[in-house]
């Protein structure tokens, strides 16, 4: 770990001023990913600006006319267990709790969750080629061991996936990311926040240098009655998703009025195809309907030697999770072991 200067920012303005003077400076909030990358000798911050003390972003507030504002500095744990989240946006609570470990969720912040780097093995090994880490060096995963990699939206430069569970739910809920940058405030709809690798896999999202996420806003639509988050992985906890699905439904009887489906573990960003959701409008909430939506969501999916299974698994997961969303209180028929 290199020597570095450490500053605590007392306000967003102060933090921005600091990064203006030191363009290489990095922000730290929970630090759960940054410190790992630093210890692995992959990042070498010369200046660290600690945002944890910035007042005004540590709470979850109800907005007028519906919706919630999630402060960027609220921890993932505090968010998942917050009564407003548990009651009104239970899909988000479930997704957060499916991720990481209790210890990590206690440290990790909501803003930081959006900025996790991929868990691609090759990204974490500074001695091997990786276009995300060192643009132009090549992608070790394409010809290597790609079990955990993308089946959708990948490019010849990068097949890494975005690891967050929370963001899959935020995508389904159509959250909006609030940002303050050197040019002032702006909002980015969740679908536009993370990006596909294309020919610039080093760039994970739409943030500009110096930008600070201040909050994540949830729209008024809560999907508190029919929702489910299903995460499939190589052990039953503390593993990143091979495939995960966030499903939120608005039903009238058994008829779907509105549907949201987002996939995790399959692409460089939470994967949502609005056309797939439109297909479900007015349809009965059945396995057949969800299968049709799944086909649309997975259109153009391309597997690699070790992750071909994800295409079929994702389809089955979408169908199952659609059915699970009908009765979220029982999570049946669920993926958990039966009692």
């Amino acid at each position: 770990m290199n020597n570095f200067t450490y500053t605590t920012a007392g306000s967003i303005t102060a933090a921005l001023q600091h990064t203006k003077r030191h363009p290489q400076a990095m922000y730290i909030a929970g630090g759960t990913n940054l410190l790992d990358l630093w210890k692995y000798n992959l990042l070498h911050p010369q200046t660290l600006v600690d945002l944890n003390g910035v007042p005004g972003y540590h709470t979850i507030e109800a907005k007028e006319g519906g919706g919630l504002q999630l402060g960027a500095l609220v921890t993932n744990a505090a968010t998942a267990y917050h009564p407003l989240i548990e009651q009104r946006y239970p899909l988000l609570s479930k997704a957060i709790l499916a991720g990481a470990s209790a210890q990590i969720r206690n440290m990790a912040t909501n803003g930081g969750n959006l900025l996790q780097r991929t868990r691609c093995y090759y990204y974490y090994d500074g001695d091997v080629p990786c276009n995300k880490r060192e643009p132009g060096t090549g992608c070790s995963a394409i010809k290597g061991y790609n079990r955990i990699h993308a089946i959708l939206g990948a490019s010849e430069h990068c097949i890494a996936v975005f690891p967050s569970d929370m963001c899959v739910a935020l995508a389904a809920l159509e959250a909006v990311v609030q940002i303050t940058g050197q040019q002032g405030k702006r909002s980015i709809p969740f679908a536009d926040f993370h990006r596909l690798p294309g020919n610039a896999p080093e760039k994970d999202n739409a943030l500009q240098a110096g930008d600070i996420i201040t909050s994540i806003d949830l729209p008024a639509k809560e999907f508190a009655h029919h929702y489910s988050y299903l995460k499939l992985r190589d052990r039953h906890s503390y593993a990143f998703a091979l495939v995960s699905v966030a499903t939120a439904l608005e039903l009238e009887g058994n008829e779907i009025k509105e549907a949201r489906i987002a996939l995790g573990g399959v692409a460089h960003k939470p994967w949502r195809i609005p056309e797939a959701e439109q297909l479900l409008q007015g349809k009965p909430a059945t396995a057949e309907s969800f299968a049709q939506a799944a086909d649309k969501l997975l259109e153009g999916a391309q597997g690699y030697p070790h992750n071909q299974f994800k295409i079929e698994l994702a389809k089955k997961a979408i169908i199952r999770n659609g059915l699970m969303a009908l009765h979220p209180e029982t999570q049946l028929p669920g993926a958990q072991p039966s009692a």
Binding site: V128, G144, Y145
Partner: peptide, 8 residues
Amino acid sequence: DEHLGKYI
């Protein structure tokens, strides 16, 4: 990883 000759 057989191409890299190392554990990943």
